[in-house]
Amino acid sequence: MAPSTSQPFSVSSGSLTLRGDHWPGTGDARDVTPALLLHGGGQTRHSWDRTAAALAARGRDVYTLDLRGHGDSQWAPDGDYGMDAFVADLRTVLTDRARRPVIIGASLGGITGLCTLGEDPDLAAALVMVDVVVNVEQKGIDRIKAFMTDHIDGFANLDEVADAVAAYNPERKRPKNLEGLKKNVRLHDDGRWYWHWDPAFITSGQGDEPRRHTDPARLAAAARNVTAPTLVVRGGKSDVVSDAGIENMRELVPHAEIADVSDAGHMVAGDDNEVFAAAIVEFLDRHGL
Rank of each mutant, 00 (worst) to 15 (best):
W195N: 03
W197E: 00
V226L: 04
N184I: 13
G180Q: 07
L158C: 11
P216Y: 09
F201R: 13
K145H: 07
G235F: 04
K145I: 07
D215K: 08
K173P: 08
R211A: 12
D190V: 12
K182D: 04
N184L: 09
N169T: 10
G205Y: 08
T230M: 02
A220N: 14
T214G: 03
L158Q: 05
R218P: 02
D163L: 10
T230A: 03
G235N: 10
K237N: 00
R212P: 09
R143P: 13
A220S: 13
L158P: 03
K173D: 14
E171F: 05
L187E: 11
P210I: 02
T149F: 10
R212N: 09
R143T: 10
T230N: 04
D150N: 13
N184R: 15
V233N: 01
D189Q: 15
T149S: 05
T203K: 04
E160M: 13
F201T: 09
P216D: 03
P199A: 09
R172F: 06
G235R: 01
V161L: 10
P170C: 02
W197M: 03
L178K: 02
G191D: 01
V185A: 06
A223V: 13
P216T: 11
N177L: 10
A221W: 00
A164Y: 00
V161A: 02
F201K: 14
L178G: 04
E160F: 08
P199R: 02
D153C: 04
P175Q: 00
L187M: 06
R172C: 05
D163P: 07
A217N: 03
H196T: 03
D163V: 00
G236K: 07
L158N: 07
R218Y: 07
G154Q: 07
R174S: 05
A221Y: 05
N184H: 03
D189F: 12
D215W: 04
A221V: 01
F155Y: 09
E171V: 06
N177W: 12
A221F: 08
H188C: 06
V232N: 05
K237E: 11
K182P: 04
L178S: 04
T214Y: 15
H151C: 06
D153Y: 11
Y194L: 03
L178Q: 04
D190H: 03
G236M: 00
N184S: 10
P229Q: 09
W197V: 09
K182G: 04
L219D: 00
I144L: 15
A228K: 06
K183D: 10
F155H: 01
R211Y: 12
A222W: 03
P199V: 08
V226Y: 00
H188Q: 14
A167K: 09
N225C: 10
H151L: 00
L231I: 06
A200K: 13
L231Q: 01
R211L: 10
P216M: 14
P175E: 02
A162R: 08
R212W: 07
G235M: 06
